[in-house]
């Protein structure tokens, strides 16, 4: 009995051993071996690329996508030192980063994957429903420090901001503050989620955060009379909107191209919307919006890229001027928050 058992084990063992030897041989002989793709960068863009990667891997079992956070700066730095194929960023690549990239032979290529609105939020106990851009600027620069001055109750304003390095802050600073300095005693929090918690806790608080992170615990304040929604952010009527970016080294190719195409076309854009961001387009006419950062064509030495006029740039420059760009609105899309 024991001997038979032992023989049985030996046979199973040898089978396993055989499989172990065989499997790598088989996979090596396969010309379409596993494709790997790394994506790294902004924590704001993370949920979008993460869910996109999961669905994409589900469709393409041969592809392994590894998604990492770390921040926009980390993502772009990784692109420059070639440790990631795709960098995500919640801010535009900076001139000095482009310089560094060029120095190491990397040519950053920009793709807008989604739009994100920056919602201004207050504590639910605050009666203020609307603030003008000027009022927001006064609050954040310290000109106004009590809600009374804005027609609210006599309560000190607790100004909540984000780290000066965060993409959300940079967008807010550019859009709302015109580059003025935030008052130094503003509370600085490390994430969108903490802004939510802090504003929910402090009656006099005001904060701002990515549209996708809005929660029921806080009150959304309209800006210049416009409430943030999918419609108002995409059309550019809501003044605090920003694009979210992907960067690749040169025009995306191979696996990176397939993934980016997936994410920027209809199905991927639906995922974008499910994550609480605003899709940039619908339909598969263009694989993303390619354009040259800061309009400096010398950045791209490959010269193949044609400068497709960036729709978002139009949106930004004609902020509040209504919809000017074709191909953006989604008539059938319902906004979850306003609906």
């Amino acid at each position: 009995m024991q001997v038979r058992n032992a023989g049985c084990f030996a046979r199973i063992f040898s089978c396993l051993l055989f499989l172990l030897v065989l499997v790598p041989v088989v996979s090596c002989s396969d010309p379409e071996a596993r494709n790997t793709l790394t994506i790294k960068g902004s924590t704001t863009v993370l949920p979008v690329v993460q869910i996109g990667a999961e669905v994409f891997m589900d469709r393409n079992p041969r592809t392994d996508i590894s998604v990492q956070g770390g921040g926009s700066g980390v993502g772009i730095a990784s692109l420059i030192d070639r440790t990631t194929r795709i960098a995500t960023s919640s801010r535009e690549i900076k001139a000095e980063e482009i310089e560094r990239a060029k120095a190491s032979g990397v040519h950053p290529y920009e793709i807008v994957v989604a739009m994100d609105g920056i919602a201004v939020i207050a504590n639910p106990s605050n009666p203020t429903d609307n603030l003008t851009m000027e009022q927001i600027r006064d609050i954040y620069t310290g000109k106004v420090s009590n809600w009374q001055e804005l027609g609210g109750p006599d309560r000190e304003i607790v100004v909540i901001s984000r780290d000066t390095s965060s993409g959300t802050f940079e967008a807010f600073e550019k859009l709302a503050l015109d580059g003025l300095r935030v008052r130094p005693d503003a509370l600085v929090t490390a994430s969108n989620q903490v802004v939510n918690t802090t504003v929910a806790q402090a009656p006099g608080a005001i904060g701002y955060l990515g549209y996708g992170y809005l929660s029921d615990r806080v009150k959304v304040v309209s800006v210049d009379g416009v409430r943030p929604s999918g419609e108002t952010i995409r059309s550019g009527r809501y003044p605090l909107a920003r694009p979210l970016y992907l960067y690749t080294d040169g025009k995306p190719a191979g696996e990176a191209k397939r993934y980016i195409d997936f994410l920027t076309q209809e199905e991927g854009q639906r995922l974008v919307q499910e994550q609480g961001f605003i899709p940039v387009r619908q339909g598969g006419r263009l694989s993303g919006q390619w354009y040259e950062p800061r309009g400096k064509s010398r950045i791209f030495s490959r010269g193949k890229l044609r400068g497709i006029r960036p729709a978002l740039r139009v949106l930004r420059s004609e902020r509040g001027g209504g919809l000017k760009t074709a191909g953006l609105p989604f008539p059938e899309q319902r906004d979850r928050r306003t609906a």
């Binding site: 924590t43 956070g69 770390g70 921040g71 926009s72 700066g73 980390v74 772009i76 730095a77 420059i80 900076k94 000095e96 980063e97 560094r100 780290d163 000066t164 390095s165 965060s166 993409g167 600085v188 490390a190």
Partner: peptide, 10 residues
């Protein structure tokens, strides 16, 4: 901790 991740390296 807060600023390292987002800053421009170098």
């Amino acid at each position: 901790a807060a600023e390292m991740g987002e800053t421009v390296m170098g």
